[in-house]
C-alpha cells in the first residue's frame, strides 16, 4: 500500500493529463447491450498570447473565450466491442488587435462528430481488473465552417488510440497514447497532425456498497504535440502540457464530474492565444 501511495505521489509530481476519449468512464458500460450518455461543458477564457514558449501579450482587451458543450454516447455490443460518439456545440469569440484596431471574431454552432470503435480486452484477477484497447476513430466534418472564427475547419480526420486502464478497489489508472491525422479543410485550413499521451491516475477513497455510491479523485495529465498547420484565420500547432484534478461522484448508474485543467507548458508555432486554464463540468448515465 505504501508503494502504491509512493507511485501515486511520483506520478502526481513528475508526469504530465486525461481527456474523455472514452465517454462516461473507461470501465463502463462493460456489460453487453449497455449504453450511456454524458454531457460535459467546458469553459476557458484567456488574455495571454504566446509565440513559441514566450508570452507576447497579456493585453486585457485582447481575449479569447471558448465554451464547448459535448454530448457523448457509448454502446457496448460485447465486452470487447464498443462504439462511441461525441459531438460538441461550440460558442467562441476572440478580440484581437488587427492593424491598430480591436476586432472581434465569433463562431458558434455544432462541431465535428467523432465516431470511435473500441476493441477492448479485459482481464479480471482477484481484486484487480485491467483492460487494454485499440480505438480507431473518425472525425466527420459536420461542424459549422461559417463565421470569422469558425468552429470547424471542415476536414475529415482519422485517429487511433492505444490505451490501458488498471483498477483496484482503491486505485484507478488510465493511459492513452493517441494519434490524429488531420485532413485538409475548407478555406485553406490544414491543421497539423496530433500525437498525445493522456494519463489519469487517482484514488477511490470513498465507497458505500449498499447505496452504490462513491467518489474518485483523479489527476488528469495531457501531453500533446501538434505539427504546424493553419486553421481558418490563424496558425495552429505546438506542444502543450495540461494538468488538473478531477473529482467524480457516482451513485448507482449516474456519474458527475468536475475538472479543472491548468496549462502548465505551452510552446506554439507562430503567435496564438494560450489555451489557458479550463473548467469542465459533466454528468453521465449508463443503462
Amino acid at each position: 500500500m505504501k508503494l502504491i501511495f509512493l507511485i501515486f505521489l511520483i506520478l502526481l509530481v513528475f508526469i504530465p493529463n486525461t481527456l474523455a476519449h472514452q465517454p462516461v468512464m473507461d470501465m463502463a458500460p462493460r456489460w453487453e447491450e449497455g449504453y450511456g450518455f454524458q454531457v460535459r461543458s467546458e469553459y476557458s477564457k484567456v488574455h495571454k498570447q504566446i509565440n513559441k514558449d514566450k508570452s507576447v501579450s497579456t493585453d486585457p482587451k485582447q481575449v479569447q473565450k471558448v465554451h464547448r458543450t459535448w454530448l457523448e454516447g457509448v454502446y457496448t455490443f460485447k465486452r470487447w466491442l464498443r462504439t462511441s460518439f461525441k459531438i460538441p456545440y461550440i460558442s467562441k469569440e476572440k478580440t484581437i488587435l488587427e492593424n491598430g484596431v480591436y476586432a472581434k471574431k465569433t463562431g458558434k454552432g455544432l462541431g465535428d462528430l467523432t465516431l470511435g470503435l473500441l476493441l477492448k480486452n479485459y482481464t479480471n484477477l482477484g481484486s484487480k481488473t485491467w483492460n487494454w484497447a485499440i480505438t480507431p476513430s473518425f472525425r466527420l466534418p459536420t461542424g459549422n465552417t461559417s463565421g470569422n472564427f469558425a468552429v470547424s475547419d471542415g476536414s475529415f480526420d482519422m485517429g487511433v488510440s492505444f490505451s490501458t486502464s488498471i483498477e483496484t478497489e482503491y486505485i484507478f489508472q488510465f493511459y492513452d497514447l493517441f494519434f490524429w491525422k488531420n485532413g485538409r479543410g475548407k478555406k485553406g485550413a490544414n491543421e497539423g497532425d496530433v500525437i498525445g499521451l493522456d494519463i489519469n491516475v487517482g484514488i477511490h477513497p470513498y465507497h458505500q456498497n449498499l447505496n452504490n455510491r462513491g467518489v474518485f479523485l483523479l489527476l488528469d495529465m495531457s501531453l500533446r504535440h501538434q505539427n504546424q498547420g493553419q486553421q481558418i484565420g490563424n496558425v495552429t500547432g505546438g506542444t502543450k502540457l495540461f494538468i488538473g484534478p478531477i473529482i467524480m461522484f457516482y451513485q448507482r448508474n449516474w456519474m458527475y464530474r468536475l475538472e479543472y485543467s491548468l496549462a502548465v507548458y505551452e510552446k506554439s508555432y507562430g503567435t496564438q492565444f494560450s489555451r489557458g486554464n479550463k473548467l469542465s463540468l459533466g454528468a453521465g448515465v449508463t443503462f
Binding site: M25, M27, A28, R30, N124, L125, S127, T129, E167, E169
Partner: peptide, 10 residues
C-alpha cells in the same frame, strides 16, 4: 475484478 460498483451496474 469487481472493484467499482459504477462499473458493475450491469
Amino acid at each position: 475484478g469487481i472493484v467499482c460498483s459504477f462499473c458493475a451496474y450491469g
